[in-house]
């Protein structure tokens, strides 16, 4: 499963989106799709758990969690740094 697929699965469980994550493009605005800032914390925790990573403080911003692509690329960056 690619990072994008895992992020979509996490969003379906924790994102409180109005539409399934599969119906969104990678660049659609997740906040516009219904994700609250409270839900984004749960998304962050679940993404950390799914990939066994921890977001450093500098990545804990609204922009990191604004789209499927931004989350996936942050994850990939952290996985590369850990490799």
């Amino acid at each position: 499963m690619s990072a994008v697929d895992t992020v979509r699965r996490v969003l379906d469980t924790h994102g409180k989106l109005k539409t399934p994550a599969g119906a969104l493009t990678e660049d659609d605005d997740l906040y516009a799709a219904g994700m609250t800032s409270h839900a984004s914390v749960n998304v962050m925790l679940a993404v950390e758990d799914a990939f066994d990573i921890e977001f450093p403080d500098e990545l804990l911003t609204k922009t990191t969690f604004c789209s499927i692509r931004s989350i996936s690329s942050a994850v990939e960056g952290l996985l590369e740094a850990a490799a």
């Binding site: 924790h14 749960n42 925790l45 679940a46 950390e48 758990d49």
Partner: peptide, 13 residues
Amino acid sequence: RQYVRSAARRSIG
């Protein structure tokens, strides 16, 4: 902090 975050990951929500 790390401990609390790991606990939060186990009980999301």
